[in-house]
């Protein structure tokens, strides 16, 4: 893993996109800090972070789009497969290298609260608590971006899909208000998801029967639960959507509440998507 990480850092440090990433991150934090903290004389650095969190939509695709898509395009994935490395070595090595490059601009940002402290009453605990949450949020989004990069060999497509996914997640709270909150609406959405799951199973296993069975079992389960206890379905879709939002949990930190469950959630999302990334790499040997 260390070998892959060292190699990946070496590669990323001569890639223009890494510097572009750092530039965008520092620039947006800088502008936000200037507006909030300097011009408007606010002592809350954390507001800065919450305002700029939308920048992830732009910068995460920049730093993750190449990650695995590029290996596929250059055919260097064959080298990685033939070397005595496990898939986890490769994925974790890449992930931690990207995380290091994500943290480098954060080191500069981490100086801001101390600087502001000299001129006013800055809540350091809230500021740094938010910064830590910002890092974990970034790590989770990096894992999502890496997984998306592992699905294609075109980094442009990887970047586009990542941006859309992150934007949808960012706005999922707002979108949740527009979804149906009735029982029937929830049931329909669940059945749709069962069908999508069926299609995925069918594509992965290449057996239509498996897909039909998976879809039928999931849709059947949803139907049975609906028949027995339909109250559970009341407002289910908006609830799930707001639960899945990574950004929503971040605002708790900004409000001065160090939410450990949110950190656990970020770590779980990170591990889950890295796991999917490993599976995606493994799967490519099986087609």
């Amino acid at each position: 893993m260390i070998t892959v990480m060292r190699h990946e850092l070496n590669m990323q440090d001569r890639s223009f996109s890494t510097y572009l990433f750092g530039f965008f991150l520092l620039e947006t934090v800088g502008i936000a800090a200037m507006i909030y903290n300097i011009n408007n004389k606010l002592a809350n650095f954390e507001y800065c972070l919450s305002t700029i969190s939308l920048v992830f939509v732009l910068i995460i695709p920049i730093i993750t789009m190449k990650s695995i898509a590029e290996e596929r395009k250059l055919r260097t994935d064959q080298l990685l497969y033939s070397l005595p490395l496990s898939m986890w070595d490769i994925v974790l090595g890449k992930f931690f290298a990207t995380l290091v490059n994500f943290m480098l601009p954060i080191v500069f940002v981490a100086v801001y609260p101390i600087l502001f402290k000299r001129y006013g009453n800055v809540y350091l605990l809230t500021s740094y608590g938010s910064l830590i949450a910002f890092i974990f949020l970034g790590a989770a989004l990096i894992a999502v971006g890496m997984f998306i990069s592992s699905l294609t060999e075109n980094q442009g497509i990887a970047a586009g899909i990542s941006a859309v996914v992150i934007a949808l997640n960012y706005y999922s709270m707002d979108l949740a208000n527009y979804t149906s909150s009735t029982k029937q609406g929830s049931l329909i959405v669940l059945i749709l998801f069962a069908l999508i799951a069926g299609v995925i199973v069918w594509r992965l296993t290449k057996t239509a029967l498996g897909g039909i069975i998976a879809a039928a079992v999931l849709a059947g389960a949803a139907g049975i639960v609906y028949a027995i206890k339909s109250d559970l379905f009341e407002g289910l879709v908006p609830k799930v959507m707001s639960r899945l939002s990574l950004f929503n949990r971040f605002y708790a930190f900004v409000n001065g509440n160090f939410d450990v469950t949110a950190i656990v959630y970020y770590i779980s999302v990170t591990v889950f998507f890295l796991f999917l990334c490993v599976q995606s790499l493994e799967k490519r040997r099986y087609n």
Binding site: M11, R14, L74, R75, T76, D77, Q78, L79, S82
Partner: peptide
Amino acid sequence: YLPEIPPLYPD
């Protein structure tokens, strides 16, 4: 192993 297309990192 040398695959058909040499797996090189151009940079």
